[in-house]
C-alpha cells in the first residue's frame, strides 16, 4: 500500500515538474528587487561586497534565522547523542597510531587555517566570503587535531561560551539599533570609506559574530560526533532496528 502511494506521489511530482519544464522560459526573468538593490546598496550600506549588504542588511533577519537553524541542528544533535554518549566512555588520546607526519602537518596547518578563516571573516564586507565561509574554515582548524589524534580533548564549555555570546552579540547589535530609535537589525555607526577595513557600519561586527558562532558550533558538533566514535556495537543497533520494525507493524 505504502509503495503504491509513493509511486502515485512520485508520478504526480514528475507531472508537476514536466509542466514547469514545458512552460518555463529561461532568461528574461524580471529583476525588480535585484536591480533596485544593485543600484542603491552601495549608497545605502557602504559595503564593497554587495552580497554582504543583502545578507546582513536587506535580509538581516533571514541571516539571524540561518544561524539559529545551525544552532538548532547542533542542539538537537547533542540532545539525541546525549542518550547514547552517556553509556560509553571516551577513548583515551592515542598519539602512537597517528604517526609523526600526520601530527606535525596538522600542527603546521592549524595557524594557517586560523589565519585564513579570520581573514575571510574580517573581510566579509569587502571581498567574497564572510562569516559563514570563514566560520567553516575556523571549525576545520579546530577539528584537525581531533582527526589527527582521535580522543584529543575538546573544551566543550569554552565552545559553548563562544557560541552563546557570539549569537547573543548578533541579536544585541540588532536590539541596540532598536534602542536608538531605528528598526531591529538596522545598520548603524556610519558607512566609512568604501573598501577600507573599517567601513559599512555594523556589518563587519555582525559577520564576526556569525563567523565565531558558525566556527564554534561546527567544531562542537564535529567533536560531539567524533567522541561517540565509530565503535557503536553492531549487535545493539540490529536489536534496536528489529524492535522498531516490530512496533511499526503493530
Amino acid at each position: 500500500m505504502r509503495n503504491y502511494s509513493a509511486l502515485l506521489f512520485a508520478s504526480g511530482l514528475a507531472f508537476l515538474l514536466m509542466v514547469i519544464a514545458w512552460q518555463f522560459t529561461i532568461g528574461g526573468a524580471p529583476m525588480l528587487i535585484g536591480n533596485a538593490i544593485l543600484q542603491q546598496a552601495a549608497d545605502e550600506l557602504g559595503a564593497a561586497n554587495l552580497v554582504t549588504s543583502v545578507v546582513l542588511g536587506y535580509r538581516g533577519i533571514d541571516t539571524l534565522g540561518e544561524i539559529a537553524i545551525l544552532f538548532t541542528a547542533a542542539t538537537a544533535t547533542s540532545l539525541v547523542l546525549s542518550s547514547i554518549s552517556g553509556q560509553r566512555s571516551r577513548p583515551a588520546p592515542n598519539t602512537a597510531q597517528s604517526g609523526t607526519i600526520l601530527i606535525s602537518s596538522s600542527r603546521l596547518l592549524f595557524p594557517l587555517l586560523l589565519t585564513l578563516g579570520l581573514y575571510i571573516v574580517l573581510h566579509g564586507h569587502l571581498t567574497p566570503g564572510g562569516g559563514f565561509q570563514g566560520g567553516v574554515i575556523l571549525a576545520a582548524a579546530f577539528f584537525l587535531p581531533l582527526l589527527a589524534v582521535p580522543g584529543h580533548g575538546v573544551n566543550h564549555s569554552g565552545l559553548a561560551l563562544v557560541e552563546g555570546f557570539s549569537g547573543a552579540a548578533f541579536i544585541l547589535i540588532g536590539i541596540i539599533a532598536l534602542f536608538q530609535g531605528n528598526a531591529f537589525l538596522q545598520p548603524f555607526m556610519g558607512h566609512g570609506a568604501m573598501g577600507s577595513l573599517f567601513s559599512a557600519g555594523t556589518l563587519p561586527l555582525l559577520y564576526i559574530a556569525v563567523g565565531l558562532k558558525v566556527g564554534a558550533e561546527l567544531s562542537g558538533l564535529l567533536a560531539n560526533l567524533a567522541e561517540i566514535g565509530p565503535a557503536h556495537p553492531v549487535a545493539e543497533i540490529s536489536v534496536e532496528t528489529q524492535s522498531v520494525k516490530g512496533s511499526a507493524h503493530q
Binding site: I69, A73, A248
Partner: peptide, 28 residues
C-alpha cells in the same frame, strides 16, 4: 523567503523535540 527560513528553523527544532523520547521507535 523569510517565512521559508522560519519554517526551516521550526522544522529542525521539531526534529529534535520529536526524537527527545530517546528510544529506537522514536528515532525511526
Amino acid at each position: 523567503f523569510n517565512i521559508y527560513v522560519f519554517y526551516e528553523l521550526l522544522s529542525v527544532a521539531s526534529f529534535g523535540l520529536a526524537a527527545s523520547t530517546h528510544n529506537g521507535a522514536a528515532f525511526a
